[in-house]
Amino acid sequence: MALDPHLEPHWDSAALITIDMQRDFLSDGAFGLAGTTEVLPNLGKLTAAFRSAGRPIVHIVRLYPADGLDVDRVRRTLVQDGGQFVRPGSPGRLLAEGLAPIDELDDDALLRGEPQLLGPAEYALYKPRWGAFYRTRLDELLTGHGVDTVVFAGCNLPNCPRASIIEAHERDYRVVLVTDAVSQASEQGFREIAGLGTTLCTTAEAVSPAP
């Protein structure tokens, strides 16, 4: 069956967005989320395909300063009481090993909202809340690269990927979720995401059109 022309991904103008794939959020990390380490092989295939095609990649990251003042309310007490995960300067806030061309993050620049260039058309970008577009320059960055399709993968579908997908739809992007490259997923979650107009596909399907 033909895809709805208003929803069909444009792979030649797509960007890959990875969400919170940081060491503290890996399955055995300080604030580990089950299944996150396990999606790394597929994320590796996705990043390799997008790099090979010269398409943009944006790695969205969290940073929780010790004062906890600019942290989601649900985690603010935890951070202010000494919870140490994705803290600036700590090894745990780094992207999963091998995911990006550069391991080190420039915390000060990221906290100022500046995209950090990691490689050709590849960036790290800090988000202060669940959604990747909220109080960030993501829309500006994507527009600058002529992107009209965003492909999401990464950590914890019910929270940050879901919020980011909703924000992308609100900005009229064509939206894709790679179902075997996102953690904490469920069939119910996939149905809800698809109901928003999101295209669901596997890693193999995402890399086969040579995005």
Rank of each mutant, 00 (worst) to 15 (best):
E170V: 09
G89C: 01
R135S: 14
T179E: 05
D139E: 15
A185N: 11
S27E: 11
Y123N: 11
R73N: 12
D20W: 00
Q22A: 13
Y126Q: 04
Q84A: 15
F50I: 04
Y64P: 09
F25C: 14
D148Q: 01
L105F: 07
R135M: 12
S27K: 01
G89I: 03
D103E: 12
V182C: 14
A14L: 01
A181E: 06
L105W: 05
R162W: 07
E114L: 13
E104H: 12
L99N: 06
W130K: 02
A181D: 06
E114K: 10
N156W: 08
G131F: 05
N156G: 07
R93D: 08
I17D: 06
G197F: 13
P101Y: 04
I165K: 01
L63R: 07
A185R: 08
P5M: 15
P115H: 11
G195T: 05
A132F: 00
A96Q: 01
G119F: 11
V39L: 14
E205A: 13
D4T: 12
G195W: 06
E167T: 00
V175P: 01
L110A: 15
D148T: 07
G144P: 02
G54I: 03
R135K: 10
L118N: 09
T202G: 05
I102W: 00
G189M: 10
R51W: 14
L63C: 11
Y126D: 06
Q22T: 06
L46D: 02
L46E: 04
A96F: 00
R191K: 10
A66M: 13
A2I: 10
R129M: 13
A109I: 09
P209V: 01
T149W: 02
L26R: 05
L157M: 12
A49E: 08
A185F: 07
G83F: 15
L40R: 07
N42H: 08
V86T: 01
V182E: 10
R76Q: 10
R75I: 09
A53Y: 01
A66N: 12
L105G: 09
T143M: 13
R162D: 14
L16V: 12
S186Y: 04
H169L: 12
L40S: 02
I166Y: 14
E122Q: 05
E170A: 11
L141G: 02
W11Y: 12
L125G: 10
